[in-house]
Design a protein around this nucleic acid. Structure first.
Lengths: 231, 231
DNA sequence: CGCTGTATGCTTACGACGTAAGTATACCGG
DNA sequence: CCGGTATACTTACGTCGTAAGCATACAGCG
């Protein structure tokens, strides 16, 4: 077709690191992290496993690349909308990305090194908080608090085996008989209420997030009261 | 020696599920989860790998047992000290257990089934909150919020590669040159402050926890105001 | 006492894994 | 045209979880 490439004997489009990493992300999304092997990934790309090592140092390097993809899908906090809405948007963006790639939280625990995408992200969040008037210490507190909550929520959401209300009902039918109301009355009343109301993760997430943001706002106000932050 | 056991040809103490699981926990603590293989575990117990399958259905079953051990190390909330101190103690207990076994958070994501120890734990926490006057919905909110924070914090603590102030200084020397102050000013000022103050995870953890508990207390008060909860 | 499960251990073997080492091919700049 | 570089393939090693089969030792029972 074109004039330069497609030299007749390499039918497949050229392999490169990005294509390898993206295919790995797609494979992990579809089949889970434990199904991601170099051989299966090669198969998916029409290539032998060892050929992947021309584009990726080893499997850990591949996993690092996958983490970077996830980070790149997270919106940086908007700088023009006030810290609170910026933090809300970022939190939602993180949760969406982690829900899209349920394997990501598990990976981020193992791979401790942070790529430039991750660093840029951290920098932007800290900057947003500092610009809003948080002291260095309080910005650090706020960051730990928000990230702990967001990641912890994403993990629990990912490990609970239902996403839709139908799956919730389905799972309740299987699990609840093993949780008799006599020994676990509190679990049962909570489960009954959740089933009746049609449980919604997003609503649950935002409830906790707003409670935390309220606390941070009070922290900011009381710090302002007792002496302005250097800005 | 004794009259009944020790029939001269089985020198080692009898193997059973508990000994296998405990050895697995110890091995994972020392060498990490990725070093836990059935062969190495057998070696540690003076036994071939396949012999372990007489006491454990398969590796997943072993992992489930390990999770149960971790849960059994977590103190149930005290029922006689008020919900706030009970939640504080439980939170500290969870964090300690997860810090003692850094592999636990990673496992709990994968193994979604909950054993009786886990169920009992959930029940006790919910009961504590309900007794304190939280509505069913608010107790559920509080549980999600607290657990998300605790687990998220534990994960970040485990994945950050330092535990002592010395290790922090050591790591800073390695990492900071790769995080230039011109492009990452906020990260650098935060790192500098943490280095100067001697960063303390426990302090950081309790700061966020107290902020959350403050928020929950307000929630409880405002619910009390607008009409008592059925109790 | 011997007979007979049953519990517990060991050996061997299979297929999948990550990846080191060596080889073949196809392109590009001289 | 020629040599180097990039990319792909083949083969092979050690490790993994575990299925299948075999050995032994003990308990209950006649």
């Amino acid at each position: 077709m074109g004039t330069q490439p497609e030299p007749s004997s390499t039918p497949r489009t050229a392999l490169n690191r990005e294509r390898v990493v993206r295919a790995a992300v797609a494979l992990a999304d579809e089949a889970g992290l434990e199904a991601l092997s170099m051989r299966k990934l090669g198969q998916r790309l029409g290539v032998e496993a060892m050929s992947l090592y021309n584009h990726v140092a080893n499997k850990d390097d591949l996993l690092d690349g996958m983490i970077d993809v996830v980070f790149s899908e997270i919106d940086l906090p908007a700088s023009d909308a006030g810290w609170r809405t910026a933090m809300r948007q970022r939190a939602a963006s993180v949760r969406e990305a982690l829900a899209r790639h349920p394997w990501a939280t598990g990976l981020m625990e193992l791979r401790t090194t942070h790529g430039p995408t991750s660093l840029r992200h951290h920098e932007a969040v800290l900057d947003c908080l500092r610009e809003a008037g948080f002291s260095i210490e309080n910005a650090t507190h706020a960051y730990w608090l928000l990230d702990s909550y967001i990641y912890g929520f994403a993990i629990q959401e990912a490990s609970l085996p239902f996403g839709t209300p139908e799956e919730l009902v389905e799972m309740a039918e299987i699990v609840l008989p093993r949780v008799p109301a006599e020994t676990y009355p509190r679990l049962n009343e909570a489960a009954a209420a959740a089933l009746a109301a049609g449980y919604d993760y997003t609503h649950e997430f935002e409830f906790g997030l707003d409670l935390i943001l309220d606390g941070l706002e009070r922290l900011l106000d009381s710090a302002r009261e007792s002496g302005a932050t250097v800005h």
